[in-house]
Design a protein around this nucleic acid. Structure first.
Length: 467
DNA sequence: TAAACCCTACGTATCTGCAG
DNA sequence: CTGCAGATACGTAGGGTTTA
């Protein structure tokens, strides 16, 4: 600190240096937002310049030009806005400010503002080619800042320098697992959290690169999970990937491409790892939906289902498992027995509809909130194992009918073009329903709305509609 | 003749110097 | 840190010129 004072580095300049240290390279607006978090426009990433405090930006420019003069900061990038990055000397000052010894091997996790030593090579201005990618990553951080302020959440993150891990692959030897970052968004004073890996997508990656990317996730998970159960894994390792694209319009097209490569590569990890495809505009909804407690969602679902189950024409009210019976909430759902859930590694919720010949249709309730893979993987998983699960045998399970529930916009119909197992998938998803649990609307797979006052959706596939 | 290309002027965004 | 004045750079609209 002494030396800093002698060099006459004001507090504002220290803050600027700190932000550049954390984020490596920033433009004027990003710097402005990080230094004035409360002034991030609530419409971000859409905003106009007159929503910003011009004087503060003006002042930032001055500070930066002074820092440039004292050779602590350098600027780069041809197109405005310019990129500001620490010089080697500036980095050295940042290390001093953070009490980081400048020795190779002083590694830290990067969580909780515990930064370690990296050589200047990992702090220099990013190459022109990667500029857009880097900017996208920073913008994502600004977005999260805003969301956390708006909803009083906490978040912590490590960037790709810290999140890269070397691992051993049985066949191919040493490999590096390199996500674009790892994030934890937390509800204050609660255990609810959203822990995910970040993948930024410039929309330019070809199919086989996407495949390779997800294949590495599989390999890495295989590597770290040896002898560890899914439940144990969940404590330490993200169970989601947030795949953020730059494009605003072509999400659907991108989703299909990403989805099929994911399904072709991820293998058994599909039921563990949930891949969300979204753009900047969707992040807020996605995080809120994820963080909203499962209890709340279940209550709504239960309320919607109760009249359907009490309907006289509906046969086959399920008997809830022990776990549910002990619960104070009146549940409309069946669950598997605990040991069955254990074997499956996840916890299906379902209802049963009895057919005339005493066979049962299994309606499996699955969250599917716009472009996520987990639900689909779970249905496929359940379909494959259903016949061998004792309690499913017991109830004489015949058809599996997924009910995809969502809160926001109804996802488009499922398409499996380009998936290796397209025929299998199509046969699994021959029948399914959509259910908006907020508005209590039901749709069949051809997007026809089902008026639940007239037709009980749970009987929808019993009669003429069925085969 | 239409499409492709180029030039220019102008408005706006970005940035700087300097005074207070 | 703020305010003012002005420079620079970029995107774009519009008109003219070249090309197929």
């Amino acid at each position: 600190m002494e030396t800093l004072r002698n060099n006459k580095i004001s507090e504002t300049k220290e803050q600027i240096i700190q932000q550049l240290f954390i984020y490596r390279s920033l433009n004027i607006y990003q710097l402005y937002f990080f230094l004035n978090r409360l002034e991030i426009p609530s419409t971000y990433p859409h905003y106009s310049l007159d929503q910003l405090n011009r004087d503060k930006i003006r002042s930032l420019y001055n500070q930066l030009s002074q820092l440039k003069k004292s050779e602590l900061v350098i600027e780069s990038s041809k197109q405005p806005p310019k990129q500001y990055t620490l010089s080697e000397e500036g980095l050295s000052v940042a290390f001093q400010m953070n009490n980081i010894p400048e020795v190779e091997g002083y590694r830290r996790t990067g969580w909780n503002a515990e930064y370690g030593y990296f050589p200047y090579d990992l702090y220099r201005p990013v190459k022109e080619r990667l500029q857009k990618h880097h900017q996208h990553a920073i913008d994502f951080n600004v977005m999260l800042q805003l969301i956390c302020i708006k909803y009083d959440l906490e978040y912590d993150y490590i960037d790709n320098r810290y999140s890269s891990v070397e691992y051993n692959n049985e066949e191919k030897g040493k490999k590096i697992f390199r996500p674009d970052g790892e994030f934890i968004v937390k509800v204050k004073n609660s255990n609810e959290k959203f822990h995910f890996w970040l993948e930024l997508d410039m929309g330019t990656e070809k199919s086989h690169l996407l495949f390779d990317k997800f294949e590495k996730y599989k390999q890495y998970l295989n590597y770290v999970s040896e002898g560890v159960s899914h439940t144990e894994l969940k404590g330490s390792i993200p169970k989601s990937i947030l795949f953020v694209t730059t494009s605003q319009k072509h999400i659907w097209a991108r989703w299909q491409n990403v989805f099929r490569n994911y399904m072709n590569s991820i293998d058994k990890w599909g039921t563990y790892l949930n891949l969300y495809v979204c753009n900047m505009e969707m992040i807020e909804h996605l995080i809120l939906a994820h963080i909203q407690s499962a209890k709340e969602t279940n209550t709504k679902l239960n309320n919607n289902l109760r009249p359907l189950i009490q309907d006289k024409s509906f046969i086959g009210q399920p008997k809830p498992s022990n776990a549910v019976r002990q619960n104070t909430v009146i549940a409309s759902f069946c669950n598997l027995y605990e040991e069955e859930e254990e074997a499956l590694q996840w916890k299906p919720m379902f209802t049963l509809t009895q057919l005339s010949n005493k066979e049962n249709q299994v309606f499996l309730y699955i969250k599917f909130d716009r472009y996520e893979t987990n639900g689909i993987s779970k249905v496929i998983d359940f379909f494959g194992k259903m016949k061998s699960i004792p309690s499913m045998k017991q109830v004489n399970a015949k058809d599996l009918i997924p009910v995809f529930y969502y809160a926001d916009e109804k996802p488009k119909s499922l398409i499996f073009e380009g998936c290796d197992q397209i025929e299998k998938f199509k046969s699994i998803f021959k029948y399914y329903l959509w259910h908006n649990y907020d508005t209590n609307e039901w749709f069949d797979m051809n997007d026809h709305e089902i008026d639940s006052k007239i037709i009980n959706p749970l009987n929808y596939f019993k009669g003429n509609n069925h085969r």
